[in-house]
């Protein structure tokens, strides 16, 4: 085939089960649902997580990213983690470093993201993958948001809201499960307040406690809430795994 260097060759396959992929994981519903989709088509070899110290990071979701190791354990997947100061653009080199580590440790041939609509995020990750000669997959890209949310619930994902950053979300949303009732409210908010149904505009953030590919589910044992003027965070202080 033709690739970035202009050579012609057939696609490479180094694993028996399919292409080995690393999933960029923030701990939220989009990255883990993208992981679920990738598992049905290729081989997910690891999760990749970037922990940012900057709460205003453009690229990386913040609330409760420290629970990604527990999610990886629940899913039985290895995890590659790096830390970043979260300075715009400089954090991209940290992401690149994380992906390089995943290549070295797990032989990944490509990266999966949960990007939905953000050209800003998607283009930057595409460039990193091009520079590293890796495939890049965005299975939720410009998906039908309502159908996606319905499928998320239908397939057994249990995602709770861990951050709200926009009107009209009140404090009761912190810790609320994304179920059919919540989706009904979100649809109403999307109509009346022009939020994106999936929270892609940064209106809310989630944490996935259970997924179809988890062998154990996460239980939040202790958490604290901060909320003021339509901005709030549920910080999980202690969590554990329980048998499903």
């Amino acid at each position: 085939m033709l690739h970035g260097k202009g050579e012609i060759q057939e696609p490479e396959r180094t694993s028996v089960n399919g292409m080995k992929l690393g999933v960029l994981c923030s701990g939220g519903k989009d990255s883990l649902f993208a992981c679920y989709l990738a598992m049905q088509k290729e081989e997910v070899a690891c999760l990749i997580s970037v922990r940012s110290r900057n709460e205003e990071s453009y690229m990386f979701h913040i609330p409760n990213v420290h629970l990604v190791p527990l999610q990886a354990e629940a899913a039985g997947l290895p995890l590659v983690t790096v830390e970043t100061e979260g300075i715009e653009e400089a954090e991209l080199s940290d992401l690149s470093r994380a992906i390089c580590l995943a290549v070295e440790r797990h032989g990944i041939e490509g990266v999966v993201t949960g990007a939905l609509l953000s050209v800003y995020q998607a283009a930057r990750i595409q460039r990193i993958c091009r520079d590293l000669d890796l495939w890049c997959f965005n299975p939720l890209w410009y998906t039908d948001q309502e159908a996606y949310m319905e499928l998320l619930i239908e397939t057994g994902f249990r995602a709770v809201v861990t951050g709200v950053f926009s009107a009209p979300f009140d404090a009761t949303w912190l810790g609320r499960m994304i179920d059919r009732e919540a989706l009904k409210d979100l649809k109403q908010y999307a109509r009346k307040h022009r939020i994106t149904l999936t929270g892609e505009g940064g209106e809310y953030e989630t944490l996935v406690l259970d997924a179809p590919f988890y062998t154990k589910r996460i239980v939040i044992e202790e958490s604290t809430e901060e909320y003021f003027n339509y901005r709030g965070i549920l910080r999980v202080r202690r969590a554990s795994l329980e048998t499903k």
Binding site: M1, G4, I8, G110, R130
Partner: peptide, 8 residues
């Protein structure tokens, strides 16, 4: 981006 099999 890396998929150019169609061209081959």
């Amino acid at each position: 981006l890396k998929d150019n099999l169609f061209a081959a």
